[in-house]
């Protein structure tokens, strides 16, 4: 049984499209990235999965419980961090968690131990007695995650968990999420692609409410990249370098790279040991090599390409 099964989920708003015919599955223990530009339907999907509102048609099952037939059971299995990280600002961290522990039905005897545990896990112990309203954005985010983890849910849904944080906090939250993934299923939405590729096992890309692709970041890269690309940085006159690179058999084109004036991107034919040939050619011309490596397509490029393809298909 998959942890999450989404079955032709569709949501229309009175004045706008929400999500159209979304189907996918998330395995147990998997961290799934949910990727799309702002307004593409990520939050709408999450709100349906958390039973905040029902879909217009279609359904989904969380740990085997249907979101339409057993919403309370679904909510029990879920931990949820909404996008805007809503919190009761007038409560101290510990009372806040204690309130949700009670709502979640954690027995009074276990409550304190459980709260201490999540406080520790989210590095909140030293601010446990401070008012949430007085905490910085990064800490509030952690309180939100602590609340989602409180009842040890099987499935965790995090809507843009790192938005608005500083780089150090982003790294901390990411490693926290990565640590969670081992024991439970996580769906995490983002419009930042590097984040998704850093944390997630698989990625769902949606655009204008429609599913565009579901795959591992690695496979997505491979699928869309037609020819291997090689990045070369060499010291010397650019013209000479370009000429040398072009002369190597198997090279299809040489373009200046975006990383600096000494970087070049080489498109090569598949199946040939082009990197070796390139290195030898440069050495033969006495051009010293600073860097030479194969490059994967970045998720940014994949994303732009997928979305462009999608728009094109629709136009035809």
């Amino acid at each position: 049984m998959n942890a999450i099964e989404v079955d032709h989920l569709t949501k229309y708003y009175s004045n706008a499209r929400g999500v159209i015919d979304l189907s996918f599955e998330v395995n147990k223990g998997e961290i799934m990235g949910f990727l799309g530009p702002n307004g593409s339907g990520k939050t709408t999907t999450m709100r349906m999965l958390t039973c905040f509102f029902p879909p217009t048609s279609g359904t989904a099952r969380i740990c085997g419980h249907d979101i339409l037939k057993e919403p309370l059971e679904v909510r029990r299995k879920l931990g949820y961090l909404p996008e805007s990280v809503p919190l009761y600002l007038d409560m101290p961290v510990r009372s806040y968690l204690s309130f949700f522990a009670e709502v979640r039905g954690i027995p009074a005897r276990q409550r304190k131990a459980r709260i201490d545990e999540v406080l520790d896990k989210c590095s909140l112990t030293h601010v446990a007695h401070r008012l949430i309203g007085k905490l910085s954005k990064g800490y509030r985010q952690r309180v939100g995650i602590a609340q989602a983890l409180l009842h040890d849910p099987e499935v965790l849904i995090l809507d843009e968990p790192t938005i608005g944080l500083d780089p150090k906090q982003i790294i901390e939250i990411r490693s926290l999420i990565k640590g969670l993934g081992a024991a439970r299923t996580v769906i995490l939405s983002s419009h930042i692609l590097s984040e998704v590729s850093a944390v997630c096992d698989r990625v769902i890309i949606i655009h204008e409410g429609k599913l565009v692709a579901v795959d591992t970041p690695h496979n997505l890269t491979r699928r869309l990249q037609q020819t291997p690309k090689i990045l070369v940085r060499a010291l010397g006159p650019a013209e000479a370098i370009t000429k040398t690179l072009r002369s190597v058999p198997g090279v299809l084109s040489v373009k200046p790279g975006i990383d600096g004036p000494d970087a070049f991107i080489v498109d090569a034919e598949e199946g040939l040991p082009v990197i070796n040939s390139l290195a030898q050619a440069l050495c033969a011309q006495n051009l010293s090599i600073a860097e030479i490596r194969p490059v994967d397509m970045t998720l940014e490029e994949i994303f732009i390409q997928l979305v462009a393809d999608d728009t094109e298909v629709r136009r035809q």
């Binding site: 039973c51 905040f52 805007s84």
Partner: peptide
């Protein structure tokens, strides 16, 4: 206004 209603609506509460 604060959005906290979303927390209540997604908790196991009627």
């Amino acid at each position: 206004k604060m959005g906290t209603i979303e927390l209540l609506f997604t908790s196991p509460l009627r």
